[in-house]
C-alpha cells in the first residue's frame, strides 16, 4: 500500500460530503423528536468516513447495498438531501416516494440498490448482482455493507460461501461499530478479529480502523481492484463507532460516557477538518462550507415539509411490476 499523499481538493470534497451526512442526520434526529419522522431512524454519525471513502473509490456503474443504516452511503453516492429528507418525512418526493422510509432508501440510477432491514438478508442479493456482472461479462463491482451483528447469522454464511466459491466481483464491508444493537462484540463473537472469517470462505480478509477517510479509501480501492480484475471477493472488517444509539429509541445505556468521549476524539469529520487546516486551508473557508451545508439542510427540511404526501395510487401500482416486454 502506497504512502498517503493527501490531495487538498479531494479532501475538501470529502470533508463537504461528510459534513452533509453529519448535518443531515443531526437535523433528522431533531425532526424525529418533533414527530415529523416516524418509524425507526438509525443514524450513521461517527461512521461517515467509510461511506464517503467507498463512494470515492467506486465507479458510477458499480452496485451498492447497505443495511437500514443507509443515509450515509446514499448521500455519499450523490442522492440529493431533498429526496433523502422527503423520504424520512414520508413524502411523494422522497427517494422511494414515501414507500420505503429511513430503512429503505433506493437510488437505482446511482447504483444504490437499497437499504435493507433484515440483518444478513441483503448479502446474498449483493452476491447476486455480482453474479450478474460475471454472467453478463460486465465490469461492475458490487460493494455490500453490513454490521458486526450480521456476521453471526446464516445469511452471512451462505452469501460468503457462494461468493467465495464462484469468485464473484463483490466486496463485503463489515462496519464493525462494536455493538449488535446493544450487545458488545465480546458477547456476540468469540473472535476479536472478524476478518479471519474470510479465510473460511476462500477469500482475502482485511482489517482496519475506519475513522480516516484516506486510509479507508486505500483499503477499499485495493479490494475493488481485486474484484474488478476477476480475483474474487474480499471481506473487510472496518472498525468504527456510532456516536448515537442503535436507533433513536436507544439511549445507549450499555456503554460508558468515558468510552463515548474517547471515541469522539477520533471523529472522522474533525480529523479531516484538522488535516485540511494542516494543509493550509483557511478555517474560515471551512466555516463557510459548514454554513452553506446548514442552509442546504434547512432547505431540504422546507422541501420535505412542503412536499405532497405519499400517494395511494403509487402504493397500489407498485405491488407488482407491469407485465410485457420480455
Amino acid at each position: 500500500m502506497g504512502v498517503l499523499v493527501p490531495n487538498k481538493d479531494d479532501l475538501l470534497r470529502q470533508y463537504r460530503t461528510m459534513m452533509v451526512i453529519r448535518r443531515f442526520e443531526e437535523e433528522a434526529a431533531r425532526h424525529y423528536a418533533k414527530g415529523n419522522i416516524g418509524g425507526f431512524l438509525h443514524l450513521y454519525i461517527g461512521q461517515e468516513a467509510i461511506a464517503v471513502a467507498a463512494a470515492e473509490v467506486l465507479e458510477d456503474r458499480d452496485y451498492i447495498f447497505q443495511t437500514y443504516r443507509d443515509h450515509g452511503i446514499a448521500l455519499a453516492r450523490g442522492m440529493s438531501v431533498n429526496a433523502a429528507m422527503a423520504e424520512l418525512f414520508g413524502k411523494d418526493t422522497g427517494c422511494s416516494r414515501g414507500l420505503g422510509g429511513s430503512m429503505h432508501f433506493f437510488d437505482v440510477q446511482r447504483g444504490f440498490l437499497g437499504g435493507w432491514a433484515i440483518v444478513g438478508g441483503h448479502l446474498a442479493l449483493a452476491a447476486g448482482t455480482a453474479f450478474k456482472s460475471k454472467y453478463a461479462g460486465e465490469d461492475r463491482v458490487t460493494i455490500c455493507f453490513f454490521g458486526d451483528g450480521s456476521t453471526n447469522i446464516g445469511g452471512f454464511h451462505e452469501a460468503m460461501s457462494l461468493a467465495g466459491l464462484w469468485k464473484l466481483p463483490v466486496v463485503f464491508v463489515c462496519e464493525n461499530n462494536q455493538y449488535a444493537m446493544g450487545t458488545p462484540l465480546e458477547r456476540t463473537s468469540p473472535l476479536k478479529d472478524l476478518s479471519i472469517k474470510a479465510k473460511g470462505y476462500g477469500m482475502v480478509g482485511d482489517r482496519l480502523e475506519g475513522h480516516d477517510v484516506e486510509v479507508v479509501q486505500e483499503h477499499i480501492a485495493e479490494a475493488v481492484a481485486r474484484a474488478r480484475s476477476g480475483e474474487g471477493p474480499t471481506f473487510i472488517e472496518i472498525q468504527t463507532y456510532r456516536f448515537r444509539g442503535h436507533s433513536m429509541s436507544d439511549p445507549a445505556k450499555y456503554r460508558s460516557r468515558t468510552e463515548l468521549e474517547q471515541r469522539k476524539q477520533q471523529d472522522p469529520v474533525v480529523l479531516v477538518r484538522e488535516r485540511l487546516i494542516g494543509l493550509g486551508v483557511d478555517e474560515h473557508a471551512l466555516d463557510d462550507i459548514d454554513i452553506e451545508i446548514d442552509e442546504e439542510i434547512d432547505a431540504a427540511v422546507r422541501f420535505a415539509d412542503e412536499s405532497p404526501p405519499a400517494r395511494e395510487d403509487v402504493m397500489m401500482n407498485t405491488v407488482l411490476a407491469p407485465e410485457g416486454g420480455s
Binding site: 446474498a124 452476491a127 447476486g128 448482482t129 454472467y135 452469501a159 460461501s161 457462494l162 420480455s326
Partner: peptide
Amino acid sequence: RRVIDTPIAEAGFAGVGIGAAMVGLR
C-alpha cells in the same frame, strides 16, 4: 454458465437469484 449447481444453501442461492433478477437477469 447457465445450468448452475449450487451447494446446499437455499437462502444463499435464492438470494443470489433475486439479486441477479434485480439487475436484469431472469
